[in-house]
Simulated assay, not measured.
Amino acid sequence: MKRWNWLYAGIERIFERPYQAGKIINRRYRIKDCLGMGSYGITYIACDIVTNQYVVLKQMRKTKRNKGTFSFQREAQILQMLHHPRIPKLYDSFTVKGIPHLVMELISGKTIEDLLFKEGKTFPERESFQLLMDILAIVEYIHENGIVHRDLRIPNIILQEGKVYIIDFGLARFLTESGRENNDDIIEKKLRREISVKSDFYALGHFMLFLLYSTYEPTVKEERSWEEELSLSVEARYILRKMLQIDVPYEEISQLSADVNRLLQKFTDGGVNDVIV
């Protein structure tokens, strides 16, 4: 089995050769750099030679034509619907040699992933939940438009001069679409990919654990659960357990936002003292 996986990976590398820097796509977009390869697409920074502005260009992976084409079409449709200052604009979409491409607004700034793992930034409890509150304001707009993001991870949240942005709507779906798009038996993946607002809350629960673990310093060698390792207030633990669906989960974003707001207000009032160690 490992041999076949290695062979398949080798074949993918042959077919999925990213564009080289300097190449002009669709007679308009000059590739500057390759940002990375995702589930269905390869993402680049490119210069629009008409406007002389930098943009994000996303190319569908050649080996993902079946699901990838649908994903690209849905992403374009969703971005055309959403008009929010903290969500990238869709500028253009086109096909080159049968391969769909999207052109989007470039959001400069740093991803939470880079802040945590490259710069070593730490997020104490209060700052973590304040950031969550800012994210929820954008997610509320997304949900109000009948859309679920389904990929709210640390690489897809950007901070720019204190403002938060959500990017990469490649896995986003309309809430009217039913079911899950995979048959994976892993519970975590099912919860992340469910076409339900709860999947965004679940993903943000894990997002919060990344933030909160940034201040964690192990005192014992054995690995324990987050509830045993993190020093959190009762309110924070309550919110996280519901987001992660350990307890009865939140059904709508207003419930989650209200609880986070109450926690932040207690910090303001000096009332968050009962920390669990």
Rank of each mutant, 00 (worst) to 15 (best):
D185E: 10
G179L: 09
I158F: 10
R180I: 08
A172C: 09
A203V: 09
G179Y: 09
I195Q: 02
R173Y: 12
K198L: 07
E161H: 13
G205L: 06
Y202G: 03
N156D: 00
D184Y: 14
I147C: 07
D185F: 15
F169W: 01
Y141G: 10
D151Q: 08
R193I: 07
L171I: 05
Q160T: 06
F207H: 07
F210R: 04
L159W: 00
E140M: 12
A203I: 05
G162W: 03
N156E: 01
Q160D: 00
K190D: 06
E140V: 12
V164R: 00
I154Q: 00
I142P: 04
I142H: 07
R150Y: 10
K163V: 06
I142Q: 01
I154C: 01
N145V: 10
I142W: 02
V139F: 08
K198S: 07
K189I: 12
R180F: 02
I147G: 06
H206Q: 05
K190R: 14
I147P: 03
L204G: 09
D200M: 14
L211P: 07
S178I: 11
E181N: 14
G205A: 03
E140A: 15
D184V: 15
E188S: 15
I187N: 09
G146I: 01
Y202K: 05
E188P: 12
P155F: 03
G146C: 02
D168R: 12
G205C: 04
E140G: 13
A172I: 05
L211N: 02
N145R: 08
N182V: 14
I195C: 08
Y141A: 13
I147W: 01
P155L: 06
E188R: 14
S178W: 09
H149R: 04
R192K: 14
R192S: 14
N156C: 11
D185C: 15
S196Y: 13
E188M: 15
L204C: 10
H206V: 09
E188H: 15
N182C: 15
I157H: 00
R173A: 15
G170W: 03
I166K: 02
I157S: 04
N182A: 14
Y141S: 12
K163A: 11
N145A: 12
